[in-house]
Each structure stands twice: as structure tokens, then as C-alpha cells.
Design a protein around this nucleic acid. Sequence first.
DNA 1: TCAAAAGTGTTCAGCTTACACCCATGA
DNA 2: TCATGGGTGTAAGCTGAACACTTTTGA
Lengths: 232, 232
Amino acid sequence: MNSAASLNGTDSPPCFEVVVDTVIFTLGDHDLKIGLVEHKPGSEQWRLPGCSIAAAEAPDATARRQMKSLLGTSEVYLQQLYTFGAPERIPERRVISVSYFALFAYERLHHHDNQEQTEGIDWHSVYDLPPLAFDHGDIVDYALTRLRYKIEYSAVAFELLPDEFTLRELQEAYMIILNDHKLDKANFRKKIREADILEPISRYRETGGRPAKLYRVRPDAQLEVKARRFFP
Amino acid sequence: MNSAASLNGTDSPPCFEVVVDTVIFTLGDHDLKIGLVEHKPGSEQWRLPGCSIAAAEAPDATARRQMKSLLGTSEVYLQQLYTFGAPERIPERRVISVSYFALFAYERLHHHDNQEQTEGIDWHSVYDLPPLAFDHGDIVDYALTRLRYKIEYSAVAFELLPDEFTLRELQEAYMIILNDHKLDKANFRKKIREADILEPISRYRETGGRPAKLYRVRPDAQLEVKARRFFP
DNA sequence: TCAAAAGTGTTCAGCTTACACCCATGA
DNA sequence: TCATGGGTGTAAGCTGAACACTTTTGA
């Protein structure tokens, strides 16, 4: 009954399978979507794409390898989220999951070289998800919360947009991710202008009315905004 | 060379030792300190207290068990931070570390029943740390960053204070943690008052001058402050 | 009566919010 | 010339920073 024994490392420690599960976000059809795979073929249940960590591999590398395999590129914004390890999270197995989120521009799904690689993945709106296996619903909830926090003090929203975009498209990205469609256009634009992270390019996007100027992220932009103090 | 094989789980996945490493913060002697253990007896190197996850144990439970063992109580604020798993992080071993931070009121170190339990731990100022083994310096840096973020949008600072405290003591806690000793007294108090999370008790603390009213956290207080928007 | 520390009110600059307005294009 | 969406300026109100002030105790 002496728990100090295991603290001292005198027992031989147990051994675990460790996987990386990734919530891949993308923006398309005016919606925020994540990539899911069918849990069992033909079943109505879905799960996050997951991948075992290899023996001599860092978790970050596992996540990148997974993106390369699923999306055809590992040039994806990736961030570790949380490690889920409740013993009962997967029935009759003991798997510890290191979760990540990935941000991926929708246009790249249809333009990269080996398009067939993405076939295993189905895209589902985060606002209308099917039943998810295991604790993957919790992982998605957590990923969405963290994504919303993240876009408020850094500029990761650009990772979900094409290289060139209009200010309206950027604003729409924020509104979709935050699920808040009441952002004021004038104030949004002023903030973006003051943040000094975009530069206009000399082309325009055709819209229903006046054409919209196209912008891109300044190559030297400082995307991490210094956090203001909430409290006190 | 087909990475899809391991994605599909057809290979038998490798197996890892997984430990919990905890950065235990406390406030004392007008300083922010963390608990360290000697890496090897008599060496000048230190490390974070760590503990292997047991076969049927959630990582959170491992962290609580560790606190019970080290501090004599598991009633400690605990939060998971990040999972460090680079293959070279520990020479000649393969250990994945799920890191946590813990917040613990200093007074409890000297008042709880089995005081001798804390003997393995030495307390070191985060502003003057000895050399740390492995990647534990990175873990501490990250924990400190996260603690500073956390106290700015939630009220976890109280976890580091005794049950009863003066407003000056609270302000000092913030100044020490943020390493910013220029907080304005009047503005700090106004913020705290408006946050409506404290209640005065009818006793006072003797100080050098006018006695200071003692406060405690309101039992029904909403300690997580809703995040304001940084960006846009 | 003085030092020390607790505790409060007031001003001003800067930011957020709300909203009104003009501009450029296609039908 | 009208509908549509792009794009901007400004006034009102709120927040935060700075600072001066009063209060209560012990020496």
C-alpha cells in the first residue's frame, strides 16, 4: 500500500500504446468542417483520424506524418491540444491519445497533386456532427474551444483561408469560427488595418457588386498578438 | 514505405512508458517557487517530481496520487499542460511525459498532518533555478507561461493563497507571478471589487500601519472570467 | 505627531461600439 | 438608375492608467 514504491520507480513501469488523434479543421461552403473517418465500414459512427506514435518518433512528427498521408502535404498548421488517457476511454483496450488540431485551407483539398489521398476522409460541419466513437466528441469540443481562443489572440485564421482573400472573406471566417454573425464590418476592418499584418495585392475579386480588393498576409507579419491582461 | 500501413493499424503498435511530471507552484517568502527533487543523490542537478502512470489509471489520477504522496493531500489545483515526447529527451530511454502544473498554498506545507512527507522536495524560486535534468527546464518555462496566462483570465491565484488574505497580499501574488511590480493599488482593488468574487470577513490582519481587512473567496464565486476578445 | 500601510475618488486618454454615409460595379 | 456589396468617418460611451487624497493604526 505504499504508493512511494512506484514513485521511486522500483516497480517495472507499465507500457502503453500511444496514438495521435487530430481534429483537422477547414472552412468551406460557409461552414467550419472537420475531417472524420468511418469508425467501422458501413457503420453510422465516425471517429477522428488517428495514428500510432512510432518507436523513435516525436508526437509532433507523428501528427505531420499523418497529415502527409491524409492530405498529401505536411505543410499544415498543427498544435498539440491535450492528452486523453482515461483507462475506460476505449473498451477493452488501453490507448493514450495525444490530440492535435490542424488548420488546412479548403482550396488545397482540391488542388494538391495527389488528390485521391484524401479519399478516406469525410468532411462534416462542426455545427452538425454525426455520432462519434470513444471520447472523440470530447476531443472535438475541446479543439473547437481552443481554436476559438486561439484566433482571438493570434492570426491563425489565415491558415484556413487561401493565399489571397478579401476582407469580407476574412471577416466571414471569424464569424463562422466564433459562431457570431454580428461582427461590425467597419470596426473589423479598422482592427485588421491597425494590426498591420495584411498587404493589398493589385487584383480584385469579382462579387455581386463593387469588386473586392484582394489581400495576402505580409511575409514579415507578426501573427502572435501580445495578450492583453484580462484579470486583474 | 507505405505509411498508410501504420495508419491502418495493421502493424503491432509500439509500447511506451508514460510518466506524469508536475510543476508544483507555491508562493512564499515573497517569491514564486516550484518543488524539485535531486536528480541523483548528491548531484547538483534537479528534476521535476515524476511518476509513472499505472496500468489502469488516468493521467489526472496519477497526478493526484503524486500530490497525495508528495504533499500529503490531493486537494490541489491541477491542470494538464502539454505532452513532451521527443525520442531523445531522455538519453537511452523512451519516456513520454504528460506534464501538469499544481497550485498549492504555502501555509499548507507546514500545517498538514504528515509533514515529513514533503521532505523529498526542495523549493526553488522560479527566478533563480538550478540546472534541471532532461527537458525539465522547457517544461518549467512552459508551465510558467501558462500560469501567467491563466491568472489573467481566471482567478486561480487564490489557489496559492491561504483561505483568508488581505487585498495587498492578493495584489502581491499577482505581482510576483507576473513579475511586474508596478500594479496600481487603486485600480487593482477596483477590478477585484467589480469582479465580485471576494467577501470580507469581520477580522483584520495586523500590519505595520492601519490593519488590513481580511477577505475570502465567495463560495459561489464564478472564478473563470469570460474571455474578452483580443482579435479582431 | 509622525511614519506606515490601508483604502478611495477623480481625471484624462484611448479604445470599443454603433451607425451613417459614400463608392464602384453589373443588370 | 437601381440593387448589391465594398469601403470609410465619426460621435458617444466605456475602460484603464495615473495620481492625489483620506483613514487608521502603532511608535
